[in-house]
Nucleic acid binder design. Sequence first.
DNA 1: TTGTTTTGTGTGGATTTGAACGTTCTCGTG
DNA 2: CACGAGAACGTTCAAATCCACACAAAACAA
Lengths: 261, 261
Amino acid sequence: MPVRAPSARATQTARLTTLLELLEQRGQWSIGELAERFDVSEETIRRDVRQLEQAGRVQKIHGGVCLPGGVLEPPYRQRLRDQAEAKQRIAERALALVRPGMTLLLDSGTTTLWLARALGHVRDLTVITNSMEIAAQVLGHAGQRLYVAGGAVDPDYHAAFGSEAIDYCRQFAPDLTVLSMGAVDPVRGFLDFDAGEAAFKRSLLPQARRVAVLCDATKFDKSGFVHVAGFGDVHDLVTDQAPPEEIAVAAAAAGTAVHLA
Amino acid sequence: MPVRAPSARATQTARLTTLLELLEQRGQWSIGELAERFDVSEETIRRDVRQLEQAGRVQKIHGGVCLPGGVLEPPYRQRLRDQAEAKQRIAERALALVRPGMTLLLDSGTTTLWLARALGHVRDLTVITNSMEIAAQVLGHAGQRLYVAGGAVDPDYHAAFGSEAIDYCRQFAPDLTVLSMGAVDPVRGFLDFDAGEAAFKRSLLPQARRVAVLCDATKFDKSGFVHVAGFGDVHDLVTDQAPPEEIAVAAAAAGTAVHLA
DNA sequence: TTGTTTTGTGTGGATTTGAACGTTCTCGTG
DNA sequence: CACGAGAACGTTCAAATCCACACAAAACAA
């Protein structure tokens, strides 16, 4: 759901929230762009930005505004903004697989994080995750239960992949397990780039009643080197563009439903 | 399912509940929008909003109303406001107990969260915690290792207190264990208000090489009902004002060092 | 009816906004 | 490296908007 520009003049606080959302999608905006988008003077935008900067939420740069950290930005934030629109669309599509009252297991990953955000208004959910980002998101949703798999937390992924996390997740039998994935290959199936991450994901497959993989179209061109799952293990593949012929055939043969956002 | 505006004039209580539902659907509403929707004057809406604000259910902003926990503060900061200066000073003082290279176990709590924030520039720390907020904070610090105790996450405290968290923490032997506390009593020692939280804290005591309790002066007037630790279990008590005579005597008798911020 | 609660209107004070103006910063040029 | 043009910035001030308080009218309950 793209952030909509308020047709009528928005209040100041509304501008601040929208501005933060805009920055999530594109890390940098110029004062002029924002003034035009909100239909206010550039000076007003500067005042807004000053407030957000004092609160530490954004960083001022000459001519515009960006997320704090700039080039020193941690890698996961960059990943979050990379392909942001596509991932957001995929998350919205994946929302259709979720029903109120379900138990979800969400793997770490930026696309699954977008899904967690989209989950805000679904009533009575139980969410299990190994991602600190997803945990923080779900804690902001009223009426959702949260179970976190702990252990050593990877500073790049902000998630726990160790044996404690694996053992903890094994006790649950979620209605839907949602995985992000580093690469998709027509022959080898679903692949990843990190052995620990892959081992964690593999361990989730047996317990799940239903497994969904969320990935944007760029993953079809890549080739990971750690096997996570075959097409037969995955019930739903949610993506933003039609996959290449070979992948579509392999998915159809294995009974994997492909959902296009 | 849009909430339908009552055709007839609604009673005040009905407006309040409907307003909260509206906020669930869209985080911000202007006074004018609400006045039109409920067909009452803007002043009436302001009165409603004032009530809800005093109850802590919503937040007033210039020109409208939004869900509590405004935009300027990152989510985890919302509860830090209370006694913020005192807690910050206590955290700064507690920083003197920390040396580079140490392994710390941080209990959940707003004062310990302030300590986590103050820890940003200490090199080569290992932090263990059951608090999602402290975890998020430490993940923002370069060069600090993080271990999170998982399990069911309490939606009020944003922390895990269950048996999994207890078992997980038991494997560590931290150099310093830092606890927040609900109340301090000269006779019964350190107390809390929640049985689960207290059980978790109690389980941390045996492994710790050194135990520090952080609490502001308001805790000296309160009286909890769950025992957590005696003065003999605690090596350091960091607070912002000199404790009452009886507590000072009890601490001195047990060898608990009292640090004033 | 009488008393209480709720709502609408008016007023003074506070906040936000936009335009004007002087200052600072950036970047290309000599 | 100095310098100057142009853009961006911060400050100031007037206008518009919004807010809180006070008081009267209306609705409601006893």
